[in-house]
Each structure stands twice: as C-alpha cells, then as structure tokens.
Design a protein around this nucleic acid. Structure first.
Lengths: 192, 192, 192, 192
DNA sequence: GATGAATGAGAGTTCATTCAT
DNA sequence: GATGAATGAACTCTCATTCAT
C-alpha cells in the first residue's frame, strides 16, 4: 500500500493548515472564517474539517502546538544565559506567543468543550517553566521572591495582548516596568 | 413647545439605549446583537438605528460617554486625596472602566471608520488626567518620574482586560506590581 | 419583491410561508431546503426563521394546520351523508391529506424533539374522528365491527403515501379494496 | 491466472459492498452517506465508486439484486403450496422486501436517470410473478378475479413501507385485511 | 485496482441593517 | 418618531464525488 506516501501528503497539509491558521488567527483573531484559513493554506474546506471537525478543534490544535514550542525555549534559555537575563528573554518570547492569540481569551470563556482543557494545558506547560526561571533569578537576588509564576504569566499575557497595536517596543517597555516591580525589594544574596 | 417634549422623550430614549448598551457590552462584549440591546433598553430596533445609524456608532457613543465620566473623576480624586493615593485610586477606577470594554480592542482594529477617532478621544481625555496625577506623585517622591502617562494607561488597560476572568483581586495585585515598578528608583524629595 | 407588506402583512406572510411549505413539502418532501420555500413564498430566509426558528418547527406547523382542517371535515361529512358513504368520503379526504406528507414519516422517527408531539396530535385528532365514522357504519351493518380506527388510519395512510406517483384513482381503488376487506363478514342489522 | 484471482477478489468486494449497502439502506434509508457503506463493507470509498460511479448506481444495483431474489421465490412457493396459501406467503415475503426500501420511493421521484429503469425492472419481474399466483388463487375460488397484480403490488408495497415503525404484526394484519378485500365476492368454482 | 485524502457545492442558521406602517 | 417585520450576506458544517498515491 502507498499509505505512507499519502500520509506524507496529509502531514504536509496538516502543517500548512496549522501554519495558515496560526497566521490568520494572529491577524484576524480566532473568529476568522474557516474559508480564509483554507484559502491561505491552499487546501479545500473539507480538508480542514476532516482533521478538525469543528473550528474550535483547529483553534485548540494551533494553541497547543505553540505552547509546546514556546515552553521548550524556556529550558534552552535557562541553560544559555544568566538567570535574570534568561527570565527577561523568555518573558519576551512568551510575549510574542501571546501576541498571536487575539480573541482567544474570549473564546476560552465561550463554554465550548473543545477549549475546556486549554487553560490546563497552558498552565501545566508554562507554570513550571516560568517558576524555574523565577526561582533561579530570585536565588541570584535579581528579583523578589514570592511572586506566583501563574499570576505573572497572566499579567504579562494581558500586557502583551495588544502588542500588535501598540508595537513590540511598547510591550517590551511595559514588561520591563513589571519586572522592575519584581526587582523592587529584591533581596540580594548576603555574600554578594 | 411640542419640540421640547419630543426632545425630552428622545433624550430619555437615548439614555436608555446607552445604558443598556453599556451593560450589554460589559457582559456580552461589543459584538453582542443589537437586538439584545434594544430589548434591554425597552425600545425598538429602529429607534437605535435612528440615532446610531450603524452598530459601531453606538459602540463609539457608549465609549465616549464613559471616557468622559471616568476622566472627570481624576480631578476629583486629586483634590480629595494625597498624590500617591490619588494615583492608585484612579488607576483602580480606570481599571473598572476597562473591564467593561471586552472586545473593544479587537473592534478598534477592524478598520471601521466609526472607530477611527476613538483612540484619539481616549488619549486626549485620559492622558492629561493621568499625567497630572503622575506628576504630583513624582513630585511627592512616590514614583519615579519619566514614565509616559500614555504607556501606563495602555499597560494598566491591558492588565485589566481580563479582570472578569481572573478576578478583580488579581487585577489589583498586578496593577500594584506595576506601580511597584514605578516606585523602583523613585527619588524622594529630600534627596533631590 | 412586492413593495407593500409588513405588520398587517405579517399574517399574510405567515400564510404564504405555510402554503409554500405545504406545497414544497408535498412535492419535494419535508427535507426540502428552506431556501426553496422562502423563494416560493416570496419572502426572505429570515422571515421564515423568525417564525419557525428551526425547520422542524415549520414542518410541525404545516402538519398541525392540515390535521385541524382535515379532522374538522369528518363531522361535517357525518352530518351530511349516510354512514357508509361518510366513511368512504372522509377516508378519501384523509387520503389527500396524507398524499402531501412525503418524507414526514421518516422525519417523525428522526428523534427531533420538535416532532415528538406530532404523532400524538395526529392520533388525538384523527382517531376519534374515524372511530365515530366507523361505529356509525358498523351500526348500519356496512362494515364489520372490531377494526381499530388507528390501524385503519395507518393502513390508509400508507396506501396513500405514493398517491402522487400512482395517481388518485389508484389510491381510491386500493382504499376501496381495503374497505371491501371491512365489508367482508360485516353483520347486517337484520341478521343481528 | 492472476486475472482469475483479481476477478474473484473483485466479485468478493462487489458482494460485500452490495450486502453492506443493503443493510445500511434498510437501517438508515437510501440517503445514507456512502462512507457508511464503505466502512461497513470494509472497502475504500474508491472501490465503491469504481463499480458504481454514482450513488444512485449503487442504489439501483441493490434494488435489482433483491428484486431478482424475491421474484424467484414466487415460483418456488407456487410449487410447494396450495394457491391461496402461496399467494399469502409470497405477499408476506414481498412485504419484507419492501420494508428495507425506506426512502427509495422518494429517490425514484428525484428524476435521477439512474433510477429511470427501476420501476420497469420492478414491474417486469414482479407483475408476472404475482399474476400467476393471483390467477391460480382465483381459479381455486379463493379470491375474486379481476384485480390487477400491479395495483396489488403497489398497495401491499405501500402498506409495508412503514413496517419497521408499526411493527411487522401490524403490516401483516393490514395485508390480511387487503386480502379479505380480495376474498369479498370471490366466486367459488361450481363443482367444488 | 484499491485507498482515503481532498474538494467544494449546498444546506441550516444568525444577525446587521432597511423600511413599511 | 417609534416599531419590529423582512431581507439577505456570511458563516459553519456535511457529504457526494474526484484523483493522487
């Protein structure tokens, strides 16, 4: 059987769809018509519906894929940079992730069961990643301890939501301001 | 004579529509069906369309009315509280204003000409109001100087957008963290 | 479309929709596209959906209206004709009713809650009507007693389903054959 | 050599498809998705379309196959039972045939050219079969003569259409009633 | 030959906007 | 002026049919 070759095509198409969806969601929000995504991906409507029976399934798939990618970078950064720097760099990376999620917050509250697991997925991937970065930075006396990673994720997330509109430079500035908030009353290690 | 009566009626209706729209936008977002607003206001659909030829006109009207109300409170607070406190209180008030604007950010980017002037209206009302509060607080050494009021408006705005979801307490906490960022490196008057 | 229609014509529109639906259901079955009905009624799609939020509501409304009309004729016929004749005439009338119900039987078994009450409506209107006719005819010795009205309703109903195809004359002939079945072993009053 | 094997395979597949289609049509109607049939037959969609270029071709093929089988049983019954009994038994068998044809009547009126020849096929197979049974029963004085076989085919067919719904017992009862209609005024052979 | 991924027309349904009353 | 019935564009989703592998 030529199953494998067919699958290769399918995989290519699935990638194309996810890429197109990511782009369309970023520019037009998660409520963008499925047709627009199909057109951008260069596939038929049915191809999308075959893999993602409801539009919400597609939204969820794009979301998960990007969460995976973004969370993976946290450890990479932690290994290649000093703690404070790694923290800031990753928050910036995370900022870019959020910037493509226009309209998702609203969708998450729509009650659609396809979205039910997304907040959990988000948290279980990002919270440990950011906690590690935060702990390391606190240990180095760069930031105050005791700030919940999850709260910070949401705060930076909210700050980043309008990034397209205000420009990345603005978002960066505000995240810096928030990090300054963390630095306020930070305790430097005694020996230092 | 009858003109006057008619105007009074019209005004009453317009108020009812704006109040209803404000409530509906806050709970269902600015994409809520016009019908819902008409029903809540107790008027016919046509009455809304007479005054606000397109949906976006109604959104804009509600927005402007609330901007006016909120901006007016800045001066009131400045007169009745010490600078640092007035700043924090108003930011909290502003936080409540934003919390009812779910979906507006997206609408502002829709390209609808009815929304074109809204950002300008927002800025020209809120920026001076916050600048005054900020300057007073900086003069009192409560916060660092040099932070642009407009940037802060957007930052707090974004932090507040998800307030319903995360709870007002969370929003308050994050705004406090941001204000801590402002306090970081603030220069106390004595040292000046 | 015509220029004059609205509130007073709402009634006219509802009638037009029901008439159009009746005709379309009769010719294309109850699964006919709503668009087709709208076109035939000369109204917009939304007009139909305003009154009949789901297509099944429209099907149900048409059904009820015709049940009412047809059942009412049973008593009229009973009063104006001798028992045996009234029975046959009404069954013929009922035959015409069924002939327009193509596809309804299947729809009734679809599990759609909008159809749940239809069989009950059908039965509670038609069964008493036919029972009266049957009893009178049996009392006159025209047909055998002991045949359940409901069974006969279904039998004649099924015989009539394809009437369009086979022609009313054929249906009439077969209903006659069925009635001959009823006459077989009928007990004449004198012999009683 | 391999040709023979391929043919055997093909035949096996065709059989599987026809069996599956028969079952699916019986349970879900002739409008059931082709996919469902392919899945039940354990073949790919393409395999069905290779042999039956359109859905309607498959419907027609299933129909013809069952007509053949059912018609063949008429002669078998005539040889193994007395005339009146053979008639009743075959009508019951025919009743089962019809019971699996839900939705076909509507399809026949769709105007699809693939169905054009089906009524003729039906008639040319069943009419002689039933005529023979009817003539034999009339000759034996069991039923009245002069009833057209074709009319009776359609009548019993229509009575049977809803058999699933009303239950086979009900259908049997109504067919019996119809046969009683035939017995009404039957002329017993003088000598008997 | 068989497979099933891909296609896209078409159907149901929603809701902004128009306009007769 | 107010009302709400009517309109129809636009959206999601289904499934017959085609065709690359």
């Amino acid at each position: 059987m030529s199953e494998k070759r067919v699958r290769a095509d399918a995989r290519r198409n699935e990638d194309a769809v996810l890429e197109a969806a990511k782009a369309v969601f970023a520019s037009s929000g998660v409520d963008a018509p499925v047709r627009e995504i199909a057109a951008k991906a260069g596939v038929g409507l049915g191809t999308i519906y075959r893999r993602f029976p409801e539009r919400s399934d597609l939204v969820a798939a794009v979301f998960r894929r990007e969460v995976d990618t973004c969370a993976a970078e946290a450890t990479a950064l932690a290994e290649s940079h000093p703690p404070g720097e790694a923290l800031v760099l990753w928050l910036k990376r995370y900022t870019a992730f959020i910037a493509t999620k226009r309209g998702l917050a609203a969708a998450l509250h729509s009650g659609d069961p396809a979205f039910e697991k997304l907040p959990g997925y988000f948290r279980s991937n990002f919270e440990p990643a950011l906690t590690a970065l935060l702990d390391a930075a606190a240990a180095a006396g760069e930031v105050r301890a005791g700030v919940a990673a999850y709260d910070l994720l949401r705060a930076v997330g909210n700050l980043s939501i309008a990034s397209d509109e205000d420009g990345p430079a603005y978002t960066a500035g505000m995240v810096d301001l928030l990090i300054d908030g963390l630095r306020f009353r930070a305790v430097r290690p005694a020996e230092k």
